[in-house]
């Protein structure tokens, strides 16, 4: 079993992550009034319905799209030379230094604690219809898994194939893939918690909740 104290210490030693905000599509960039060193906030509210700090707008076909900070952090660099120019999709615009939040630390630690079911191939993944219904109705933790059950539909080049679960029985504790996005081979799809480890996992959650200080 892993050592949670050591893990927490490691994360505390370098609690940052660099986030590069890129152009979601082509267009002409106008930066908002953000300076290097300024604090920005990410989306907030119960459903993350309040947008983060406005960083820039990108205009294409007379539509302006605001680009907001996706996480809270400090502005490290604004690529101002792009102001007023037409940029390609994926062009870096702003670099942020983000201090890991409690939930993110928890996610990192859980990834080590849970049994991970990984993607066998680079593909898009969907839950099988029965599982999908349960996940949508009562959340992933309502799904109990057992060896051999139909869990995923794997889609590549619009061809679909079923993918059965293999691993210990348990509930889906974490979901790591996004709808309609590709997952690389070897990347985790879900984290599974076997019933006998549930109390241990809950312990981990409690430790992180109390020990990790959120910073602005």
């Amino acid at each position: 079993m892993f050592d949670i104290t050591q893990l927490l210490d490691e994360i505390k030693a370098s609690p940052y992550e660099e986030i590069v905000v890129t152009a979601p599509h082509t267009g002409v960039v106008t930066f908002a009034d953000v300076r290097e060193g300024a604090r920005v906030i990410g989306p907030s509210g119960t459903w993350k319905e309040k947008k983060g700090t406005l960083l820039a707008t990108i205009e294409r076909e007379r539509n302006q799209k605001p680009i907001h900070a996706v996480e809270k952090g400090e502005v490290k660099e604004v690529l101002r030379h792009l102001e007023g120019t037409f940029v390609e999709a994926g062009t870096p615009l702003v670099r942020l230094r983000h201090f890991l939040s409690r939930d993110e630390v928890l996610a990192i630690i859980l990834k080590k604690a849970l049994h991970l079911f990984v993607a066998p191939e680079r593909a898009k993944y969907y839950f099988a219809p029965d599982v999908d219904k349960k996940v949508k109705a009562s959340g992933p933790r309502s799904v109990s898994l057992h060896e051999g059950m139909d869990l995923f539909i794997m889609s590549r080049m619009k061809r679909e194939a079923g993918l059965a679960y293999s691993g210990p029985s348990g509930v889906i504790y974490a979901v790591y893939f996004q709808h309609n996005e590709n997952v690389d081979a070897g990347q985790p799809l879900i984290g599974v918690c076997p019933p006998d480890q549930l109390s241990l996992i809950e312990d981990v959650v409690a430790r992180v909740q109390t020990e990790w200080e959120e910073r602005e």
């Binding site: 599509h25 082509t26 076909e61 037409f86 390609e88």
Partner: peptide, 19 residues
């Protein structure tokens, strides 16, 4: 040559055409 977010996005194609 221009990188776009998707081949399926008409706005992307029009924006690139104009630029």
């Amino acid at each position: 040559l221009c990188r776009v977010s998707s081949y399926h996005d008409a706005n992307e194609l029009m924006a690139v055409a104009d630029d």
